[in-house]
Design a protein around this nucleic acid. Sequence first.
DNA 1: TGAAGAATTTAGATTCTATCTAATGTGACA
DNA 2: TGTCACATTAGATAGAATCTAAATTCTTCA
Lengths: 151, 151
Amino acid sequence: MDAEAIKRSLGGSGLRCTPQRYAVMAFLMEHNSHPTAAQIFEAVNRVDPRSSRATTYNNLRDLVQAGLVREVAVEGRAARFDAKGMRHHHFICDRCGNVEDIEWYDVPRPASRSLGKRMLRECELIFRGLCTKCALRDTLPVKCRRHVGTR
Amino acid sequence: MDAEAIKRSLGGSGLRCTPQRYAVMAFLMEHNSHPTAAQIFEAVNRVDPRSSRATTYNNLRDLVQAGLVREVAVEGRAARFDAKGMRHHHFICDRCGNVEDIEWYDVPRPASRSLGKRMLRECELIFRGLCTKCALRDTLPVKCRRHVGTR
DNA sequence: TGAAGAATTTAGATTCTATCTAATGTGACA
DNA sequence: TGTCACATTAGATAGAATCTAAATTCTTCA
Ligand SMILES: [Mn+2]
Ligand SMILES: [Mn+2]
Ligand SMILES: [Zn+2]
Ligand SMILES: [Zn+2]
């Protein structure tokens, strides 16, 4: 949304604000759908200037390294990305694979005994189950369920 | 370790105890290193009987579906697997990528308000930071650090 | 200014990971 | 013993990410 804020955060991380990099960052800030690299590539190329696939991957890597973007570890195939705005947890749907934000709350750290000499940087909490849409679909009368089980 | 126990758990899940499937399960129970499918394939093929790559993947998929094996959500490229023994959390090293087990403790559920109509099945807690080896390496005197930063 | 040099982008090739296909093998059970 | 669902197999294919080497853009500073 705020173009100046994006420029500042890129500059503050030692990254030039190129049109391609800006487009990736802006797209992630405008959408909370946790898109894949391929989806981001397609979306930013619906408007000028065009960006190559390699550049999209390069920029996502740089933004993650700079701490501006998070790569959501999801067991599916393609990585999904997320602009690091407000802290939050994630809910991943068993059935449709959607990744949804869950309001953040503090997670108790492990006992220092079980942590040993490791240096803890962050705790990530991932919830799994059925998203609202899939949960409702499961409770529908049988005659209304079609194509269940077809992936 | 206990061959009979493995046979029982496979049978109990409706899976035949084939030599290939047994080898995958036994390897995962003997190693807590969270190997990739490629590593498992290579390991079980160092001994007879041989198993094809497709079978290794098929069996890993079946074992995960049966709930005997867990696929660890890790940001890297290849999925990593884990025999579901005692419940535990995971620690992933920022530097070397190793996945280590952390003693399990209860995780507070999100407020039902923020969960909405979603059906929660499980909470997965992932810690990130530096593993013991990498943390120690970082605190060594500079003259002893070699090859730092070479991937 | 305007080189020089560093950072970035690019198309396409390549590598890596996982799944699919269709043929073959195997074993539990009648 | 015959049957049939379950399993395995090699190789093809698909999908995701990275690499390469050349071109382009930006920053610096003489
Ligand atoms: Mn998110
Ligand atoms: Mn584990
Ligand atoms: Zn869903
Ligand atoms: Zn480490």
